[in-house]
């Protein structure tokens, strides 16, 4: 293990945490500020990619037992089913709705079904990006 690896690993421990937090922030802020499912997903995916680059994939897989292929499939499923759900309530495919609720701690908060859809998109993006990078780096 050379000195570069030590620096990379140490730095990435801290940086991954920051990137992940930023990614989740971006995901939720997307409704009213720059961000959203794509960007949030991409940023979170880049945190994972950094993890896989600085550590070897076995170590990460042990700590983080996620199958990213299944994650991307789950994302597509979530996005689609969030679109199908309103059809049972008489709406068109993928019609979204929103409302304002008074919640403890948060106060008056907007809850929108589009968040579920965005979560599906984000999961797909995370799954696919990490999967692509992992597939190539694990080959031979």
């Amino acid at each position: 293990m050379n000195i570069n690896d030590v620096i990379l690993k140490t730095v990435s421990k801290a940086v991954v945490l920051i990137i992940l937090t930023f990614g989740i922030y971006l995901f939720f802020s997307g409704h009213n500020h720059p961000g959203g499912g794509f960007i949030g997903g991409l940023v979170i995916a880049s945190a994972f990619v950094l993890m896989f680059l600085s550590y070897d994939s076995e170590t990460v897989s042990e700590a983080l037992p996620i199958d990213f292929k299944k994650l991307s499939g789950l994302g597509v499923l979530l996005a689609m089913s969030s679109g199908i759900a309103p059809m049972f309530l008489g709406g068109a495919f993928l019609s979204q709705s929103f409302g304002y609720f008074d919640l403890p701690i948060f106060g008056k908060t907007e809850l929108a079904t589009v968040t579920i859809f965005e979560a599906g998109i984000a999961l797909t993006v995370i799954g696919v990006v990490v999967n692509i990078i992992l597939s190539i780096s694990e080959d031979e």
Binding site: G75, M80, F93, Q96, A112, V114, F117, V128
Partner: peptide, 29 residues
């Protein structure tokens, strides 16, 4: 219900595009 117009287009007005796009991404993966 969103202030970010771009995001509202992606998630609501033209959500069908976005959904199919995520499908393309998934297939590419």
């Amino acid at each position: 219900g969103g202030d970010n117009i771009v995001n509202a287009i992606l998630g609501d007005f033209r959500a069908f595009d976005t959904m199919l796009e995520s499908l393309v991404l998934f297939i590419a993966g």
